[in-house]
Design a protein around this nucleic acid. Structure first.
Lengths: 114, 114
DNA sequence: TTAATTAACTATACTTTTTATAGTTACAAT
DNA sequence: ATTGTAACTATAAAAAGTATAGTTAATTAA
């Protein structure tokens, strides 16, 4: 049993899923393996709404997986996101996740590639 | 871009997360590496509500990851769940997820082990 | 013999997460 | 003077997850 800020996680799997289990968290993290500005990320994830991206980024930041850096003081702002050292420990797992998806898409007949 | 039943997934990562991304799906799958009866699973996942377990099991079954077998016709039923061959392709990834959680719990000061 | 227990769920209501759409700020370019 | 831009925020609605209680038909316990 694990605890973070009084929240309980019954096993190590549920602990990992707390970090990458949101609907788009793993996708966002993989895109941030290379440092990016907010709008670059947003354009790459055009199927995710702004609000969701924004909320997920905040959670990832609060969880210590990504770092947000602001370079200007007045609009239009320049903001960059990148993985922290802690976030980088997830890279092998994230690549494994992407890899399983790729292989599965090839062999599973229900999945169509366009 | 991938498609399953007219649902779109922009990248292989999002495709994988469709299968394991629900809040408890990965946890359920890891517990089903060994075939189990419904109540065994439920007791092992005491922090998850019945409704959630039930819904997730149905989705996992619909996704072809697990197989449900009924051994009786009248209550109390005997129902067993196990991974399909397709579900088994996820095992290395699931173990990776559990492993990252274990290692992270050791080194991350915000995570407490009880 | 009647009551309690069991396995595997389902029903209802509620909360949290995600989606859809539109609006904000202060400057820069046209 | 109007339009465009970056990085969000606001509001409302839909989907996912939680909390709690109820169902079935047989078995076991009192």
């Amino acid at each position: 049993m694990y605890c973070i800020d009084n929240k309980q996680f019954p096993c190590s799997t549920s602990l990992t899923m707390k970090y990458i289990g949101g609907k788009w968290k793993a996708v966002i993290l993989i895109h941030l393996i290379e440092k990016k500005r907010y709008n670059e990320l947003r354009k790459e994830l055009s199927m995710v709404t702004e609000r969701t991206i924004s909320l997920q980024l905040k959670q990832l930041e609060a969880d210590g997986l990504i770092k947000r850096t602001v370079y200007t003081t007045k609009p239009p702002l320049k903001v960059e996101y990148e993985l922290t050292e802690f976030g980088k420990t997830l890279i092998p797992l994230l690549k494994g996740i992407a890899q399983w998806g790729k292989e599965t898409a090839k062999s599973n007949k229900r999945i169509k590639t366009e």
